[in-house]
Nucleic acid binder design. Structure first.
Lengths: 162, 162
DNA sequence: AGGAATCTCGACCTTGCCTGTCGGGTTTGC
DNA sequence: GCAAACCCGACAGGCAAGGTCGAGATTCCT
């Protein structure tokens, strides 16, 4: 079930962890949409999303700390979506799991950091060009929410994967 | 001069190597635009772009193997741009240095790979949603060339950085 | 009260990439 | 022939990605 080591073959690629997180949210989202909105156990989510259980455990914890899901402890515990899917932005998820989205540190809002060897940021041509592309891209991705994922009218409503 | 280890703080971020490559091409592009189109030595490029020399060596080698620059060996050797800047696509550079651009392997044209645990790709909601964002993004970045970088009418025409 | 099913938390491990460095070889100009 | 270039392969330190594990804390059920 574990994906082993599928070398990310580099930048721009979403991490495996992020894919697991998305799949987990899809499972929870589907469940919430059903008739019986009961909490799902980690085990159940792991099974339905083909995710290593112990790893998923960690991921759900992070999602909970970020307020995206809620947990119920004890005997008949489990996880539920806290917010409505439209209120779970994919961009926030990306930042949470995979870190800053910007192609350059010096373009990141939340994780800004001046580039060590850059003497004049305003005049940096690299920054300038990537900024334009980045802003356009950001608009696209900032508008995505879990609801878009869930809706995505698919033939078979599969969680399968990535 | 070396940037040490500036932890990429993760996916989506361009690598340091890519930044060096861009800076090197900027230096060569600027030189080519000047009056005396002489080849620049690795040393010269390293100095003007604040790049560790031995590392730059490797990078220029890769650029040469990809046909983006040409090298002249021997005593008064060096590097020159092989093509006109408009014919050096940034996307190709990204793929060369940083690997595939797609957010998921299963969306990559050149480096396609089925996701291990995906039973039905056509029905995968994750793939579907990211595909849309990706295609839009791809159009943006595929249209970028070195000429855009060079042009980027800057105040001071700095190569500084990233 | 006791046990079982859950979630919670922190530590640990392995693999491979990123960012360079180094030593030596080959070409060419003077 | 010497020196200034490029060429090429090996290697090393640090850290993130992708998991695994053991033990603790809660809650439900009987």
């Amino acid at each position: 079930m574990p994906v082993g080591f599928a070398p990310r073959s580099v930048a721009w690629m979403i991490t495996q962890k992020m894919k697991y997180a998305l799949k987990a949210l899809l499972v929870l989202g589907d469940a919430a949409a059903g008739p019986a909105p009961e909490p799902l156990t980690i085990e159940a989510v792991a099974k339905r999303s083909a995710t290593p259980k112990r790893f998923l455990e960690q991921i759900l914890l992070e999602l909970r700390n970020a307020g995206m899901v809620s947990s119920i402890r004890g005997r008949s515990g489990g996880y539920v979506l806290t917010r409505k899917p439209e209120e779970v932005p994919i961009a926030a998820l990306l930042r949470l799991i995979d870190g800053p989205i910007a192609p350059l540190q010096c373009l990141s809002q939340g994780a800004y950091q001046r580039c060590e060897d850059c003497t004049d940021e305003a005049a940096c041509r690299i920054r300038k060009v990537f900024a334009e592309v980045y802003w356009s891209y950001l608009i696209l991705i900032e508008s995505l929410t879990l609801a878009d994922l869930l809706a995505s009218d698919d033939v078979a409503r599969r969680v399968t994967a990535d």
